[in-house]
Structures are given as structure tokens and as C-alpha cells.
Amino acid sequence: MNKTSVFKSFVASTLILGSAVVALPVLAEHHAMGEKEKMTIVESAVKADNLSTLVAAIKAAGLVETLSGPGPFTVFAPTNAAFEKLPAGTVEMLLKPENKEQLQAILTYHVVPAKATSSAAIQMVQDDGGAHPAKTVQGDEITLSLEGDSLMIEDANGNKAKVIEADMMQSNGVVHVIDTVLMP
């Protein structure tokens, strides 16, 4: 099975959320100590100061257990600064219990149900002539591409997120930190 087939098979499967300059000192510290293989995506995100808004959203959406499950998952994790770029009041509105389903849809749009490193994703983009569709847990597709040496993720609305920290390996998948919140 070639790499494209493997990725297409991986993206056709299903599951949550949603990479090189933003520092994750706490997360990096745990990785340096060899704890990464023991920690789930959620456990690591909780320890990263720049992912606190994402963690709050995961909790409000009731997705902690899912993202703590066996996976594997590839999570495109928006930073706090990415959430701050949304229109004023958007995050607060999404965190309300009555908007739980909408929040779940947004977060699961940031998750691909497989484990894909940045090098594997870049290879798939190159193999596909510059753009590679990936089905998310939410059910819609995101498009992976390259701008220079940067891995980019484009949502259904044409918004692009840049991977600013790649390949943070966890016990149940991999996290790529992004600079923009993706919207289905």
C-alpha cells in the first residue's frame, strides 16, 4: 500500500479538535523527560499554557474522554492566540451549554482519526500535486498544502492555519499546533 493510499485510508476513518515558532515550554519539558509516551493528547494540552482555551473548549464540549481514548488521532490544536482572532464574544458563546453541539463540531473538525507526522503529511501533499484532502472526525474535509516550508491547513471556508509546532507525539496520537481556528 503506498503512502497516499495509507493516508486516504487513515482520513476515511473517523473522530476531535482542532504547527514553527510558538513555544510550548511545559509540553516540551514533559517531552524532554520522556513522559510523552505516557501522556494522552488531553493530558499534555492541560500542561501547555498556550492551549488553555482549547482545553476549556474540550471540557465544555464533553470531549475529554474521547480525546483521552486510544486513538490514534492527529490533532490540529489552535493556540490561545488563535482563539483570540475570532470575533469578540465567539469563544464565550461557544462555551455555553446550549452551544455544545456546535462546539463539538468545531473541535472535531480539528481532528483526523489517524496518526500523521508532519513529514508524512508533507509527503502526501507532494504526492497529490500540492494539496491533499483529509476527512476529519467531524465528517467534513480539511485540505493540507504547503506554503514554502510551512504545512498549511485550509478549512471549508478558505481560511488557512499554519502549523507552528509540529510532531508532538503523545500516547494516543500526534499534535500539530496551529495559529488559526478552523471552521467547518
Rank of each mutant, 00 (worst) to 15 (best):
A60L: 05
L63A: 00
F76Q: 03
D49P: 07
S68W: 07
E101Q: 14
A45N: 01
P113F: 13
P25D: 11
E101T: 14
K8Y: 06
G139K: 01
L15Y: 14
T90A: 10
M1R: 11
L107F: 01
L86V: 03
I122F: 04
Q126C: 06
D128S: 11
D49N: 07
E154P: 05
L86G: 03
T66P: 03
V174M: 09
D140Q: 14
V181R: 00
G158W: 02
T53F: 12
L15Q: 15
L182W: 02
S119W: 12
P97F: 01
A81I: 01
T79Q: 00
D155A: 08
E165R: 15
D179M: 04
G89L: 07
I16P: 05
T79W: 02
V112I: 12
A116Y: 10
V11G: 15
K8T: 05
E98V: 09
M152L: 07
A156Q: 13
H110P: 09
N157Q: 14
D167V: 13
A81Q: 11
K135E: 00
T4R: 09
V137Q: 12
V26P: 11
F7V: 15
S13V: 13
T74G: 06
P97Q: 03
V26M: 14
V163Y: 05
M39W: 10
M124S: 10
S52E: 11
H31R: 12
P184N: 08
L27V: 11
D155S: 01
V174Y: 07
D155R: 00
V163W: 03
L144Q: 04
L51D: 01
L94D: 04
S13T: 08
S44W: 13
M152D: 00
L24D: 10
A166P: 11
I41H: 05
A82F: 00
A77N: 03
S68A: 08
L182F: 04
H31W: 15
V64D: 12
T14V: 14
D149L: 09
I142L: 05
A82H: 00
N50A: 12
L146A: 01
G130L: 03
T143L: 01
A134G: 12
S145H: 02
S52F: 04
L144S: 05
T4M: 07
D49W: 08
D128H: 09
T90R: 03
M39V: 02
A32E: 15
V112N: 01
V11Q: 10
G130T: 10
L17M: 09
Q102D: 11
A20E: 12
S19H: 07
S19Y: 05
E141Y: 12
P87D: 08
T79V: 06
F73L: 11
F10K: 10
L146G: 02
I16F: 13
Q102N: 08
